[in-house]
Design a binder for these strands. Structure first.
Length: 353
DNA sequence: AACACGGCCAACCGCCTGAAT
DNA sequence: CATTCAGGCGGTTGGCCGTGT
């Protein structure tokens, strides 16, 4: 004979927990720990199944649970891990301290999954939804055959640039109501006042489906000298965003409030070593056109180096930047270099969006 | 003000695996 | 070794709540 049943008592309560029940459970676990869920309800004076107590504790009452909105970093982590692990919520939760598998699962189903679908990204495979693309033209293009197999091949599942783009776009959508940059004057880490241009609402609409992305695009520029990372919005009136409109707000290493690049050196090395980033930037326009790819209008806009944050030079790795001191120059240089790598990845991805 | 609708999320359900008996 | 269950997991549900009409 095996064990005797424990959770089949009809007298056991179900449904929402009361504050009194919560307190009983908390008090008991604080005194005795939670080694045996089977006997816990009886010992704690609860008319609940042990399983119910365990769920209540692990998903809600545990003191180390983090509440509130998911951060951009958490969202990006979820997307990246989900692309590798699938619906392994407990494994994903193991990488997000304070978050429960249930919470992550709920957040995925109610937020991320829906927005990925709206963006035309398959939430299961993390690739563009093939049913929404003009596949004959894509597959017949020499550009696809020569340059972008990573978008639909095996590598596409973990393509860091694409996943980052997806996370960034999700974040920008989420944050648009959060008034991220609504002050007219702010200071960066050097004490320079930042000029925040009037927010620009940009729409991005895919011709094949009704993806609509609204984005508030700030522009940060110190007012009093030439040391700057300027995010011009010269194409603010375009219907679709250019690279510099997409990146500054969503750039994962970039602190919008302070115009500070976080952990850029380590990240640069990591990106180059592990994620296939290159130390040079291609000339997007010539590369695409020479391979016979018919550039859609918004990609043409993306390809203009002059619209990039630090005057991306298509023929070299250098940027035209003026700085007032060493720290500023290093900061700006790191920032602009990071933008180069992102720029190329974003471009690769955006061609198919 | 009342109603309908949809989003959110805590809690439950059902299944699987390893351990206890 | 067979049986049974606890614990863990992913999927699903139902009630609450905010928003739009």
């Amino acid at each position: 004979m095996g064990r005797s049943p424990n959770c089949e008592k009809s007298s056991l309560k179900k449904g929402p927990w009361t504050a009194e029940e919560d307190q009983k459970l908390i008090d008991y676990i604080q005194k005795n720990g939670y080694g045996n869920w089977r006997t816990l309800p009886t010992n704690a004076g609860l008319q609940r199944c042990g399983k119910s107590c365990r769920l209540r504790w692990t998903n809600y009452l545990r003191p180390d649970i983090k509440r509130g909105r998911f951060s951009f970093e958490e969202e990006e982590t979820i997307i990246q891990l989900h692309s590798m692990l699938g619906n392994k919520w407990s494994n994903i939760a193991a990488h997000l301290p304070g978050r429960t598998d249930n919470e992550i699962k709920n957040y995925w189903n109610t937020h991320i999954r829906k927005r990925l679908l709206r963006m035309g990204i398959d939430p299961v495979t993390h690739t563009p939804r093939l049913d929404l693309l003009d596949m004959p033209s894509v597959l017949s293009s020499s550009f696809y055959n020569s340059s972008c197999t990573n978008m639909f091949g095996v590598q596409s599942v973990t393509n860091p640039g694409f996943l980052r783009l997806a996370a960034s776009l999700l974040s920008s959508q989420r944050d648009q109501n959060s008034n991220l940059v609504h002050q007219n004057h702010q200071e960066n880490k050097f004490g320079h006042p930042l000029q925040v241009q009037e927010n620009t609402q940009v729409q991005f609409q895919n011709q094949d489906h009704q993806t609509l992305i609204q984005d508030h695009v700030p522009s940060c520029a110190p007012l009093n000298n030439s040391t700057c990372v300027t995010f011009t919005s010269e194409s603010a009136q375009l219907k679709e965003p250019t690279v510099d409109q997409v990146l500054p707000l969503n750039f994962p290493h970039f602190d919008q409030q302070t115009c500070h690049v976080n952990d850029c050196v380590n990240d640069l090395d990591r990106l180059i070593a592990n994620e296939g980033y290159q130390r040079h930037i291609i000339d997007p326009m010539s590369s695409l056109t020479s391979s016979g790819f018919d550039l859609p209008p918004h990609v043409s806009n993306l390809s203009r180096p002059s619209s990039s944050p630090a005057s991306l030079n298509s023929n070299s790795t250098s940027c035209i930047i003026n700085g007032s001191n060493t720290e500023d120059e290093r900061e700006i240089s790191n920032c602009s270099n990071l933008f180069k790598y992102e720029y190329q990845e974003i471009l690769d991805s955006t061609v198919f969006m």
